[in-house]
């Protein structure tokens, strides 16, 4: 909190300046440890506008690391629901959050939002498979709905608030299932539907301590990990039998 107050003091508007945007997060790093159950970060900043220049809007986008993803449409075959042909997408963001002070459509034009990939529906998800355009559209929509359902995609059109003067703030929630990797945080400022400034920062989400170590061992030394799992299970079973025998 002291860090936040210091920053806010530094960001205090200097008279006679043109509108400049500055922003930061309450932390540039999210550590996933054994008790991790999701976390909230505060995005804050200053819009440094003079009083006469009219109101501005803020849109913040948090874009998680891109992952390959496979989607299947379920089909009924002989009375049983089964997965049809898989379609792979290569650049599905593992996390995607948009926060703004009012409806995106009221802040900027649809064409601009599409070009800048703002909003889950404007994400460009690419597939190498040969899929008919209308089917592709349905698959993209299904992926976005799935991610929204998992709490990994979020759009909050009233999350950005202006507590006082030039300051703005928004809480961004990261659920327990956030993928690890680098997140891009872009804050854009608008006046009269025109972008008049933006800041970009990077947020890192990583497993830490035991979680990090276990994951690495499981993926880089799988044979040793498997043997260790076996030894652990045998030891646990043996110990349990020994304890209950003495009773």
């Amino acid at each position: 909190m002291t860090r936040l107050l210091l920053l806010l003091l530094l960001l205090a508007p200097a008279p006679g300046f043109a509108a400049t945007l500055s922003s930061d997060l309450s932390s540039r790093e999210i550590a996933i440890r054994s008790n991790f159950n999701g976390t909230s970060l505060l995005l804050f900043g200053s819009k440094n506008t003079g009083p006469k220049e009219g109101p501005v809007d803020i849109i913040a986008v948090v874009h998680g690391p891109e992952q390959p993803m496979t989607i299947y449409r379920k089909e009924r075959v002989a009375g049983i629901w089964m997965n049809s042909r898989p379609v792979r997408f290569h650049n599905v963001p593992g996390f995607y959050a948009v926060a703004s002070n009012r409806r995106l459509a009221d802040i900027a034009g649809a064409e601009y939002l599409r070009r800048e990939n703002i909003g889950p529906d404007n994400l460009v998800l690419l597939s190498v498979e040969d899929v008919a355009p209308e089917e592709l559209q349905g698959l993209r929509k299904a992926i976005v709905e799935n991610r929204v359902g998992a709490g990994l995609y979020e759009i909050q059109e009233n999350a950005v608030t202006f507590p006082s003067g030039d300051l703005f703030r928004a809480d961004i929630y990261f659920p327990a299932r956030v993928p690890v990797g680098d997140y891009r945080v872009i804050v854009r400022m608008f006046r009269g539907g025109k972008e008049i400034g933006r800041t970009t920062s990077i947020l890192t989400v990583g497993k830490q301590g035991l979680e990090q170590w276990l994951y690495n061992v499981a993926h880089h030394q799988p044979f040793a990990y498997g043997l260790a799992a076996i030894i652990l299970a045998v030891a646990a079973g043996w110990t349990a039998a020994a304890i209950f025998r003495r009773r």
């Binding site: 496979t70 299947y72 449409r73 379920k74 009375g79 629901w81 593992g94």
Partner: peptide, 17 residues
């Protein structure tokens, strides 16, 4: 579970390995 109409018509997998 096999014969009932599923709530979601798509199955999405992030398993990449």
């Amino acid at each position: 579970g096999l014969v009932a109409t599923p709530g979601e018509l798509y199955f999405v997998s992030t398993l990449t390995d």
